[in-house]
Design a protein around this nucleic acid. Structure first.
Lengths: 159, 159
DNA sequence: TTGACGCCCATGAATTCCCATGATATCCGT
DNA sequence: ACGGATATCATGGGAATTCATGGGCGTCAA
């Protein structure tokens, strides 16, 4: 399975291009589509990112009547496809961030990729810093360390 | 299943490289990804380590809507992937400790691997010494020896 | 013509690969 | 059981490659 970790700050050049971390590209190299998918995150100066395979799975879920029981939720989920952008790699492993994408996240000349497991996020660097601080405060307020949970080992999806 | 035991002090060279104990590598040799995963331990000059398989299980748990019921907890767990580092072995079974990793644990030219069962920790050697002393004090204060417990043998997941 | 976009190349820096070395541990034959 | 040969392992350094980044040029459309 695809696994995204770590934080990678990158530059956006004057053409709106940005490199995708080599590690992420390696993870995505098994995908049929050479590129990434970006979807705006509501309420944050960030975008969710992943490979084409996950986008396909999300689309399949829309067609499955058992997954979205709430009609409004289904509608919202469908709308995410309208806001999604499929961005192909150029020959050097870069993508071009469309204007509306940069506008949503307030990205001008810098951005940071942040791994979150099976997906990643692309952030405005300052906004990410603020987000991290907020999370830290919450964590220390609760005064407990984060306890990671393991998925049950039943059926393991094959990579 | 993967089993990490013992304590292994190692050197960090000027390139930031450190060998992974041969014993650990043997344990990890069945993994799909040749390398280890390190995640900072909050409040200690140490990092938690394990193989890629465990990271996949952790990531799967994030995607499973039934596992993390609390939204804040989910967010904290996702953030751990941002702090996680996937470090591949070089041809000689070494990894490169990134600057942030060394900074978190206060590691410069020495570090010590400490087995903890299904995971291990990578410590600043002095901090590990202090940690051990603290544990000993606690134990003698309570005047009790360590009692190991066994999991019920019902369903044993195969490694 | 003016951009926007895709494709190609250049470059410096960081990273990875490859080989060397000495020490330790393991194997093997007598 | 002993000793020598062999293999494994931790560690160091230099060379080769990868990577992020910037720029140029041709094409196509407005």
């Amino acid at each position: 399975m695809a696994l995204f970790t770590s934080e990678y700050p990158f530059k956006v050049d004057r053409k709106g291009r940005i490199s995708v971390p080599a590690d992420f590209r390696t993870v995505l190299s098994q995908e049929s589509y050479p590129g990434i998918v970006l979807i705006p995150v509501r309420g944050e100066l960030a975008l969710d990112g992943f490979g084409n395979g996950r986008l396909e799975s999300l689309a399949e879920a829309l067609d499955d009547p058992e997954i979205y029981d709430d009609e409004d939720e289904l509608e919202q989920a469908q709308q995410l496809f309208a806001e999604a952008r499929r961005l192909p790699f150029d020959g050097d492993g870069r993508i071009v961030l469309p204007e509306e994408v940069r506008a949503h996240a307030g990205i001008t000349d810098k951005a940071i990729y942040v791994g979150r497991g099976s997906t990643f996020r692309l952030w405005n660097p300052d906004a990410y810093g603020a987000y991290k601080s907020k999370l830290n405060e919450k964590a220390t307020a609760k005064g407990q360390s984060i306890r990671l949970r393991l998925a049950p080992k039943k059926k393991r999806a094959e990579g």
